[in-house]
């Protein structure tokens, strides 16, 4: 299953490298959101520092949702979903491959907006390991949920507007846990950032289990 998953991931990433949607369009938009918040809350720099973790994840959520949408638009265009259904590839491998590709793309997006948080909001990192692991856990949960809900919405004509409506409530616990973990890592909240990070890994694991079992059915019926 792993070679097939890597095949799908490599294909998605190659397409992304050519189209440059993530770096050329989504990342600038996510940065713009951070800049707008910086202007809006400029009078209260303390508030910006306190909310930096939450604003990072809001920005990542917005940009990441667009990347999920894009990942499934590739398959909807020109009937590629039919080609995937007709292929020999195990649906679980398709699920894992698309998750891996999204994980990389959202990760790159976060590498762009992360430094922006530090510079624009004048925040400092007090626990780099926690910050890194929380980012990995949140990105993983985001990618897994995105692929699972993305395939559900993919067969619908209203998918462009429906996907965020489905995805945001599902990702709310990730958003909350990510914000709390980042606040601890940025030293603005005393608390157990590791517990929140663990929670995100649990959410990712649960959705992975559901995805491995249900993706074939969802792909077939989508």
């Amino acid at each position: 299953m792993l070679p097939e998953a890597l095949l799908i991931a490599r294909k998605d990433l190659k397409i992304e490298m050519r189209s440059k949607v993530a770096l050329g369009q989504v990342a600038p938009l996510a940065l713009l959101i951070l800049v707008i918040f910086a202007f809006a809350l400029d009078a209260n720099s303390m508030l910006l520092k306190l909310g930096a973790g939450g604003l990072f994840w809001i920005s990542a959520l917005y940009g990441g949702t667009m990347l999920v949408q894009r990942s499934f638009d590739l398959e909807s265009e020109d009937g590629n979903f039919d080609a995937l259904r007709m292929s020999n590839i195990d649906p679980s491998a398709i699920f894992l491959g698309k998750t891996l590709a999204l994980f990389v793309q959202i990760g790159i997006l976060e590498l762009v907006i992360g430094p922006a948080i530090l510079i624009l909001y004048e925040t400092q990192v007090s626990d780099w390991l926690l910050l890194l692991l929380a980012a990995v856990a949140g990105t993983l949960a985001f990618a897994v949920c995105g692929v699972l809900w993305g395939v559900m919405a993919s067969g619908l004509r209203v998918r462009t507007t429906l996907l965020p409506l489905l995805l945001v409530p599902v990702l709310s616990p990730v958003l909350l846990a990510g914000s709390r973990a980042f606040e601890t890592a940025l030293g603005v909240r005393a608390g157990d950032g590791w517990t929140w990070t663990g929670l995100m890994f649990v959410i990712a694991s649960l959705h992975t289990a559901v995805g491995l079992g249900a993706f074939g059915f969802l792909l077939e019926e989508g």
Binding site: K11, K14, I15, R18, S19, L74, E77, D78, G79, N80, D82, A83, R85, M86, S87, N88, G216, E220
Partner: peptide, 20 residues
């Protein structure tokens, strides 16, 4: 799904990835 590995389908759409 079972027989699909032995079937080639060409539909109205070409099933191509434009950016590859």
């Amino acid at each position: 799904r079972a027989p699909r590995r032995y079937i080639g389908l060409l539909g109205h759409e070409n099933c191509l990835y434009r950016d590859l």
